[in-house]
Computed example of a mutant assay.
Amino acid sequence: MRVSHYFEGEGVVTGGFAQSVNNQRAVLDDHGIDYTTEPTLDCDLLHLNNAGPRSIYYAKRARRRRIPVLFHTHNTAADFRDSFVFSNALARPLKPFLAYAYGQADHLVCPSEHNQEVIADYTDTPSTVISNGFDGDRFAGWDDPELRAEYLDRYDLEPPVVFMFGHVIKRKGLDTFVEVARRLPEYDFAWFGYLNPTGGRLDRFLQPRETRELVENSPDNCTFTGYIEDPRGAPAAGDVFFWPSRNENEGMALLEAMHCGKPPVVRAIPTYEWLADGEDCRKVETTDEFVEAITELCEDEAERGRIGANAAATTDRFTLEGVGEQLVGLYDELVSGPTNERTPTG
């Protein structure tokens, strides 16, 4: 089997989106599947990861050649909102565009059941839920005491540290993060990750004024580290994972933090119905509840350990090994089965 595994925007699009593509390619490597990262029709399967004009062009050509097309539904209009300048204005026309793009595929991969439900309102293209998974090897050694001391010292943090990992954008709950930090001056809050949606290329232009002001006017106990080269630094320094995101297709940073045994405090959004409040997370809805849950976990080391251990156990089913078997199984099904039985959108 030869796969054209194309990621339009590669090298520009960063964060969990890009890491999910890396995860897929790690799966292909582990299973010995021949693939190219270029869009081509010299393949048995075209797997697309970002809805752009070039991807749509090759999807149409592949369908005409009876080459099965698989599209990963990383993007939704709701997930696009509150990310960078003009993102809210662009979100409205994005939905019909994505509906058209996903309608060109034979099959879709949705990273969560919630994402699948959202996408069902875009297109009737058949879909399968397969998690983006996480690469645990990236975090091997996160619990090294020297690494913890290094990152605590680098950012002048005093445990217990409340932390976040990911792009600094409003959709991720930036305003809530800052407000909770302001209301809990006795604890240090650290947000590890890019201070802009593109990883530093057009940051001042693309970052909304409100985002810049929230960061600039955050309290003294709130630290924004910017990009860190070693992702292990975040769980090494952090003790309670604060994930106030308002909309996620899955949330890879959450899986990674849980894998490292960090108890997560999450917003109660539909994406996280698979998490059990009080068992492997604290799930809340209001700022007051965030303050209460974080305070309790910071003050109770045993409870942090209990929920953290449960969180780590929960992520066992999201490893690349398990996710990889599902993805490769879908590849086999699409390549060996009939293609082009659907009429693509448009």
Rank of each mutant, 00 (worst) to 15 (best):
R2L: 08
H5S: 15
E10N: 14
G11T: 10
G11V: 05
Q19E: 14
S20T: 03
V21K: 00
N22F: 00
N23D: 04
V27W: 05
H31Y: 15
H31P: 00
H31A: 09
Y35K: 01
T36S: 12
T37V: 07
E38L: 06
T40K: 02
T40E: 04
L41G: 00
C43A: 15
D44L: 07
H47F: 13
N50E: 05
A51Y: 02
G52K: 11
P53S: 09
S55V: 02
I56Q: 10
Y57S: 04
H74F: 03
T76A: 07
A78P: 00
D79N: 09
F84L: 03
S87M: 10
S87Q: 11
N88R: 08
A89S: 08
L90A: 12
P96G: 07
D106T: 09
L108I: 08
L108F: 10
V109I: 15
P111G: 02
P111D: 07
S112Y: 02
H114Q: 08
N115G: 00
E117R: 15
A120R: 14
P126N: 01
G133I: 11
F134P: 02
P145D: 01
L152I: 07
D153Y: 03
R154P: 04
Y155D: 11
L157W: 03
P159M: 12
P160W: 09
P160E: 10
P160N: 10
G166Q: 10
G166S: 13
V168M: 10
V168W: 13
K170Q: 11
K172N: 09
V178L: 12
V178K: 10
V180I: 13
A181H: 01
P185L: 09
Y187D: 03
D188A: 05
A190L: 04
F192D: 07
R201K: 15
R204C: 01
R204P: 00
F205A: 10
Q207F: 06
Q207K: 14
P208F: 04
R209Q: 14
R209M: 10
R209H: 07
L214V: 11
D220Y: 04
F224L: 06
T225S: 12
D230M: 05
P231K: 14
R232T: 07
A236L: 03
A236Y: 09
G238T: 06
F242R: 08
F242G: 06
W243C: 13
W243D: 03
M252P: 08
A253V: 14
L255P: 11
K262T: 05
K262H: 01
P263C: 03
P263Q: 04
V265P: 00
I269F: 04
E273N: 11
W274F: 15
L275I: 04
D277I: 02
D277M: 02
G278E: 01
G278V: 05
D280H: 08
V284R: 10
T286A: 05
T287H: 02
D288S: 09
D288E: 15
E289Y: 09
V291R: 07
R304H: 06
G305T: 12
T314Q: 14
T319E: 08
G324T: 11
L327H: 01
V328P: 07
G329K: 11
L330R: 09
L330S: 08
E333N: 03
L334C: 05
L334I: 05
L334F: 05
V335A: 01
S336L: 02
S336W: 00
S336C: 00
